[in-house]
Amino acid sequence: MEAYRLMKKYGIKTVQSAYVSSAAQAVKFAAGKPIVLKAISGKALHKTKSGLVELNLTGDSQISAAFTHLKKAAEKYKPYKILAQHMVPQGIEVIMGGREDAQFGKLILFGLGGIYVETFKDVSIRVCPIRKTDAQSMLDDLKSKSIIAKDAKSASMLEELLMKVSRMLIENDIKELDLNPLILHDGTYDAVDLRILK
């Protein structure tokens, strides 16, 4: 949960999450709203591919069944923990990330995210720290700009967010960072999955 605290410190919105150790805890966390359950293990880098994600769960019985199912699927990736998250509405999936480069220092990356990231490789990279004009040109670089930044308002929101991520990368000892997907919806966003390598 340290990663989530770091995001909060820099004002980067992450979806509300908690580790749960029983079906009852998961039901309590849901508080009547739809949730997602994910098994988190260092041995499974791609949760979706490994069948470790249960989406859009509502109601006690559905949550309990999913919890049991997930525990079984995660057995071979021991040790693991189960993360409960509130369901984020559908939207555009983007990736923001960072890497410490041996030559040039911290790099920041932004592009089309989710499961298509490796297929389309539509990403833009800069050296940190970035300024507003750099953030703007990162957006301009993308083929998918018209999908990702539909209007001036969402472009501006993404630029602000990129500068926050750049600041976080610079001020912390982060070797690699993936915010993927970060879901853009209803004029706002939620970082749904994050990975930090220190």
């Binding site: 880098l45 990736i95 990330g97 960072g98 890497r99 480069d101 790099l107 990356l109 592009g111 990231v117 490796e118 490789k121 990403v123 990279i125 690699e176 960072l177 993936d178 993927n180 990975r195 390598l197």
Partner: peptide
């Protein structure tokens, strides 16, 4: 290790 590292 990450998407970012493989793309950047």
């Amino acid at each position: 290790h990450s998407h970012t590292a493989s793309l950047a």
